[in-house]
């Protein structure tokens, strides 16, 4: 099969268009179109982005006079990254972890300086890992050491397959080493901790179901926003507990350069992500229990975001890829301490 370069096909087209009367027709039919964006995100952000989209579409049409349609796709964060690498036509990605966007970047679809393209290291919001316990906290769980008391069953997803899973692991690790413990102390702690995990679900929502609906376990290590939803859903059966220290989880956002340049949607996509930093959007973000990066708005909602020490991944490892390699990847700490039952 002979496949000519796309320029060959477009070439005569350009030439003809400028010289023919038909040009007028082409231009008029081409302009009044809706721009469609696709936001590829991870599981728990479904409601958040649905809300943000509604507000952004209204605002963009008012300001630019362009009608927008925004499609959403949600799934496990790494699965979603894989789909974008395999050609899912995302204009923007809003994924759970740096690693997932980095993977897309390494595949050549996102420029490597993506993290500096939006304010606050491309983070419109952040989150953390907190504890959900049964009503009245019968096992008296207040802090990380309480999790390894005898008879306490801990629910958290598999660190190998889930963002929630490895952030739980990093939090547990950091709670030891950042409070004066040695590396060996940390290893002992996580060994005990994962011995008290009866089931390792593959994803965050699965773990939530195990804890809240199947009623297995005494404490659930969950994303802060998921925990809030879970407690609200359970109608008084569950309580939330903020440990004094936990990880700062950073779900970054980025524009998929290859796709927006091909689809000519860069302007709308950039406006979309910038919108997430506006006061309007930051309030919506807080309403959905994500911590807004805007300090004032965070303070206004202080009652639902108690201050706890949130440590960055760089405090326990060089960076996220390094932490992943040390703790989670094949042959890492997790492999040496966890034996499937």
């Amino acid at each position: 099969m002979v496949i000519s370069n796309s320029h060959n096909v477009r070439g005569p087209f350009m030439a003809i268009r400028t010289t023919r009367l038909f040009a007028l027709l082409c231009v008029t039919t081409g302009s009044a179109q809706t721009v469609t964006l696709l936001n590829v995100s991870y599981d728990p952000t479904r409601e958040l982005w649905r809300d943000l989209n509604e507000h952004f579409i209204a605002r963009y049409e008012k300001e630019k006079g362009v009608k927008l349609a925004i499609n959403q796709s949600h799934g496990g964060s790494s699965t979603q990254a894989r789909a974008v690498i395999d050609g899912l036509d995302a204009d923007v990605v809003t994924l759970a972890s740096y690693l997932d966007i980095d993977a897309i970047s390494k595949a050549g679809l996102i420029k490597s300086d993506w993290i500096n393209r939006f304010p606050q290291r491309s983070l419109p919001y952040y989150s953390t890992i907190v504890f959900v316990v049964r009503k009245g906290n019968p096992k008296g769980i207040k802090d990380w050491p309480d999790l390894v008391k005898p008879g306490v069953e801990v629910i958290t997803p598999n660190p190998k397959t889930s963002g929630n899973g490895y952030l739980s692991f990093f939090s547990a690790w950091g709670s030891v080493v950042l409070r004066g413990g040695s590396r060996q102390d940390a290893i002992d702690y996580v060994t005990k901790l994962y011995k008290q995990v009866p089931v390792l679900d593959s994803g965050a929502r699965g773990a939530t179901t195990t804890f809240a609906q199947k009623k297995i376990g005494d404490v659930h290590l969950a994303w802060e926003n998921e925990a809030q939803l879970e407690v609200r859903e359970a109608k008084g059966e569950l309580d939330i507990v903020y440990p004094p220290i936990s990880i700062r989880a950073e779900p970054h956002v980025a524009i998929v350069d290859e796709n927006v340049d091909r689809k000519k949607t860069r302007d709308a996509a950039e406006a979309y992500l910038n919108f997430a930093y506006s006061d309007e959007a930051q309030e919506i973000i807080a309403k959905h229990f994500y911590r807004p990066v805007n300090e004032t708005i965070l303070k206004n909602n202080a009652s639902q975001f108690p201050e706890i020490r949130m440590f960055a991944i760089t405090e326990i490892a060089k960076d996220i890829p390094d932490a992943h390699k040390q703790f989670i990847a094949e042959g890492g700490v997790f492999d040496s301490i966890y034996k499937p039952k």
């Binding site: 005569p12 082409c26 179109q33 395999d86 036509d89 689809k263």
Partner: peptide
């Protein structure tokens, strides 16, 4: 098809043919 496309924009611009997804 080429001629129709050139003059009448049957297939929208900047749209690729999608098979998967």
């Amino acid at each position: 098809v080429l001629i129709i496309q050139l003059y009448f924009h049957i297939w929208p611009e900047h749209q690729s043919l999608k098979i998967i997804f």
